[in-house]
Design a protein around this nucleic acid. Structure first.
Length: 860
DNA sequence: TACATACAC
DNA sequence: AATGGTGTATGTA
């Protein structure tokens, strides 16, 4: 969408620090082709930094700084704290890409930056940016040093290799196809103005005090832009009007927009709700065949005028477009005539070259803030500079990265060939930083529920589970585990994540008793398996239990793929995309941390939920679940490929059947449970198989009770081979789940997060008794084994637990409620029962609730 | 695999 | 007081 305007200043980095170094490069690569480049940390430096090394680097840095980055002072490079902090502003500023490429005239950048710094310059976020900037500076220093140390021979060779790359890029640039990149102007903001004319002419932005998704042009004049926190926007423009996002509306408008595009290219690539890349070659040709007097250029331009006029007529909103010989160029051109305009880039090498040369590299898709800063430090700011310094870049970056640079510098994009299948699915949430275990567990639980609900909807299961934790300091940690079998069950997911969380937070805690403050938790599942048969044993088991009926067929196979696509319409196109541009990684790193926060992009950055306001919206259950993501709707990814789309596979998933029929339904646990703040009472409806399960499983796996069958699938809970015979299998799963549950409940002492952890880590037992009745009792010795993070089973054993409970309370997840208030409310029983029936799973719900309940009691 | 980073929208 | 969510890709150990 749109965009414009400038970004800010740049600055100087700061602090210095440490040393280490590294290097890197950016890589590129995309799946099929181009794409990103990456940097890699290691490489160069490394080692530690000896004094000599440091000195050298510093020197280099200074040099660099002096030359290209005025703000980078030697002091900062040296790491002088004070100086660094003072300059932090500028360095950080450089990373705030608000409005990056955009340029709205009349904006006083310096002033804008000063306001931003005054408003949030000392925030944890800004501090984190400084750290990252320092890393980039170090990378620049090491690269500069390397280049300076290069021998004439090395340079000559680099130059020769670079020539070859240029040649290759030029060969790839063809003029046989006509591409259009169409982008709605300030989409969300425009929709709001359209629906409320009083807003016209006034500075306005869509979003909240914490984050803005889009700003209208009036607001941009003040420096307000998307991806900027609302409070900063207010500081820049006190009269700024904030409008709450109405995603469903944007989505429907987008559908209209896309339906029009489809007439020009049924296989267009969607880039979110407001952008798309079309190949109008055929459409243009058809018109020319009809009227032989037309030129390709005139036809294309007329076609696009028409397209935009239709969009305006249908939505009452304006769009801008770019027409060129490659998707990449078309995209860049679309921002050329910004609001409500279109730009045609002649199909000749000279025109393309003339257009690209003066462009700041940041305007090239795939070159983000980090790479921009890195290249600037190396003396490259524009495409022309990139070409001029190609020998240097060739020598300093990895081949893939360098190739990517040459491609973008020539406007080339390589099409992606392989069809894309979803690789992961995730959910994450930002909240007020807290170190309360209860709260964190509650949040984690909700995240797991939401994620598994989506997975079930989409018929996905996965083996690799990753927990993401962003500390209050904005440092991000990611920890993962790979299970022997794909799972899609909330209870297993939660147990695993919780175990990891406990472990990591403890490790990160300042003092043994204190947990570090966390501001975000996220869970991702990858190594996916698709389709209805993907049902994991555990799923099937759960289903059965809950519904009774269930599948029977017994097929256990797993994978089928089908699914991911979901939706209707648009879904398929994606195949042809290319992604070429994407990411790159630049800098080195060393210090390990880093979050990601970057800047957003132009207009709508957030597909979905904004934190506060949305916090709960996520689980609202929307029927299709789409509501939130802007992207989600079937759109495909985007990319810039120039070449004609390969074939186009992907038979649009057969959602239908898949979607429902599945027996797996029912289960899912609690999504909602705690949505409101009220106290929720849950009954342990399902009888965890009363019996006492005497599982005497030998640590090693020589389970006495469980027959093992080699070759058979592994149990997601204990990691052992599952019996092939139906009855035995059921028994096993049943027992395993109980064991799992018991261990969850059991929480001996203090560590709660731990214990409950899934089988892998620990097992403990305890007696839990709750209010009433129905109870489940299990006695016996439990010994569990499960895969550890590395996949190795870790044996555990514990005393025989005995627990009985039937209903327990759990304060709503909404953190607000003080634990003390929990209390069972009979009034809500009905409601409760209803909920319960709907989700027949009990197992996971119960177990999670128990754990949380206990945790609550303990820590309240 | 596991973890960190970059990028797009 | 205080800076999003989802997904892809890559390098390195």
């Amino acid at each position: 969408m749109e965009d414009d305007d400038s970004d800010g200043g740049d600055g100087a980095p700061v602090h210095g620090g440490d040393e280490d170094e590294e290097e890197e490069e950016v890589q590129h690569g995309c799946g099929g082709e181009e794409q990103k480049r990456g940097v890699c940390p290691g490489e160069d430096g490394e080692g530690g930094d000896t004094a000599v090394a440091k000195r050298a680097k510093v020197t280099t840095a200074n040099h660099t700084t002096t030359t290209t980055l005025p703000s980078l002072s030697s002091a900062s490079a040296l790491g002088a704290p004070c100086a660094a902090l003072e300059r932090a502003g500028s360095s950080v500023t450089g990373r705030l890409a608000y409005g990056r490429n955009k340029t709205v005239k009349g904006v006083d950048h310096e002033k804008v930056m000063a306001t931003i710094l005054a408003t949030s310059g000392s925030s944890a976020y800004m501090k984190r940016l400084q750290e990252r900037s320092a890393r980039t500076v170090r990378s620049i220093a090491s690269k500069t040093q390397r280049w300076e140390a290069a021998t004439p021979r090395e340079r000559r060779r680099a130059a020769a290799v670079a020539e070859e790359a240029v040649r290759e890029a030029q060969e790839r640039l063809t003029f046989s196809r006509v591409y259009v990149h169409c982008d709605m102007d300030a989409f969300y903001a425009s929709v709001e103005e359209r629906d409320n004319p009083d807003l016209k002419g006034k500075p306005m932005a869509v979003g909240g005090m914490k984050m803005l998704t889009t700003a209208n042009y009036e607001a941009r004049k003040y420096g307000v832009r998307s991806a900027m926190p609302g409070y900063i926007g207010k500081a820049l423009c006190p009269h700024l009007i904030l409008i709450k996002p109405r995603f469903p509306v944007y989505k429907s408008v987008s559908a209209i927009f896309k339906s029009i595009l489809r007439d020009y290219d049924p296989d267009f690539l969607s880039g979110g709700l407001d952008e798309a890349s079309l190949d109008i070659t055929d459409c243009v040709q058809r018109r020319m065949d009809r009227d032989l007097s037309l030129t390709r250029e005139a036809t294309a331009c007329a076609l696009v005028e028409e397209m935009r006029a239709r969009i305006l007529a249908a939505t009452n909103l304006t769009a801008s477009a770019g027409i060129a010989c490659t998707r990449r160029l078309a995209k860049t051109c679309s921002d050329w005539k910004k609001p409500n305009g279109q730009y045609f880039l002649p199909f000749t090498l000279d025109s393309v070259t003339a257009f690209l040369r003066p462009l700041p590299i940041r305007k090239l898709s795939g070159i983000g803030n980090v790479t921009e800063e890195l290249l600037r430090g190396l003396g490259v700011e524009t495409v022309a500079g990139m070409l001029e310094q190609r020998a240097k870049l060739q020598l300093l970056f990895r081949p893939r990265t360098f190739q990517f640079f040459m491609h973008v510098a020539h406007g080339v994009s390589v099409p992606r060939t392989r069809t894309r299948e979803r690789k992961s699915i995730s959910t994450e949430r930002t909240f007020d930083a807290t170190s309360s275990r209860v709260q964190l567990l509650s949040i984690l639980n909700r995240i797991c529920s939401k994620l598994t609900a989506e997975m079930q909807e989409k018929q996905l299961a996965g083996r690799c589970l990753t927990l993401k934790v962003k500390l209050a300091t904005f440092h991000v940690l990611q920890r993962s585990v790979t299970l022997p079998t794909p799972i899609a069950d909330s209870s297993v997911l939660f147990a695993q994540m919780r175990a990891i969380m406990a472990r990591e937070l403890e490790a990160a805690s300042p003092s043994p008793s204190r947990m570090p403050a966390v501001r975000l938790l996220g869970v991702r599942v990858s190594s996916l398996t698709f389709g209805r048969n993907r049902a994991t044993v555990l799923d099937r088991f759960v289903t059965r239990r809950g519904n009774g009926g269930g599948d029977d067929d017994g097929s256990d196979g797993d994978c089928d793929k089908q699914g991911m696509d979901e939706n209707e319409h648009s879904a398929s196109r994606q195949d042809a995309v290319d992604t070429s541009s994407r990411g790159m990684t630049a800098v080195d790193e060393d210090d390990g941390d880093g979050d990601d926060g970057d800047d957003g992009d132009e207009d709508d950055m957030m597909p979905g939920l904004f934190n506060d306001e949305v916090t709960d919206m996520a689980m609202m259950g929307d029927d299709d679940g789409d509501v939130d993501g802007a992207m989600d709707d079937g759109d495909d990814g985007f990319a810039f490929s120039d070449v004609p789309p390969p074939a186009r596979p992907l038979p649009a998933a057969s959602h239908d059947e898949i979607g429902n029929g599945n027996s797996i339904r029912g289960h899912d646990s609690d999504n909602d449970d705690d949505d409101d703040d009220e106290v929720v009472v849950v009954e342990a409806q399902t009888p965890l198989r009363d019996a006492s399960c005497h599982l005497a499983i030998a640590p090693t796996g020589a389970a006495s009770t469980i027959p093992k069958s080699a070759g058979s699938p592994l149990c997601p809970v204990c990691g052992r081979h599952l019996p092939t015979e139906n009855a035995a299998l059921n028994t096993h799963v049943d027992e395993c789940l109980n064991r799992h549950l018991l261990s969850s409940i059991a929480t001996p002492d203090t560590h709660d997060m731990h214990n409950t952890a899934a089988a892998p880590t620990t097992t403990t037992t305890t007696t839990v008794s709750a209010a009433t009745t129905t109870s489940v009792a299990a006695r016996g010795t439990v010994e569990a084994t499960a895969p550890t993070a590395t996949g190795t089973p870790r044996p555990t054993s514990t005393p025989a637990p005995s627990s009985s409970f039937s209903s327990l309370q759990l304060f709503s997840s909404s953190n607000k409620k003080p634990p003390g208030q929990q209390r069972a409310s009979s009034k809500k029983k009905k409601k409760r029962r209803k909920q319960t029936m709907q989700k027949q799973t009990a197992t996971s719900a119960v177990d999670i609730r128990h754990a949380l309940s206990r945790a609550a009691q303990r820590w309240s």
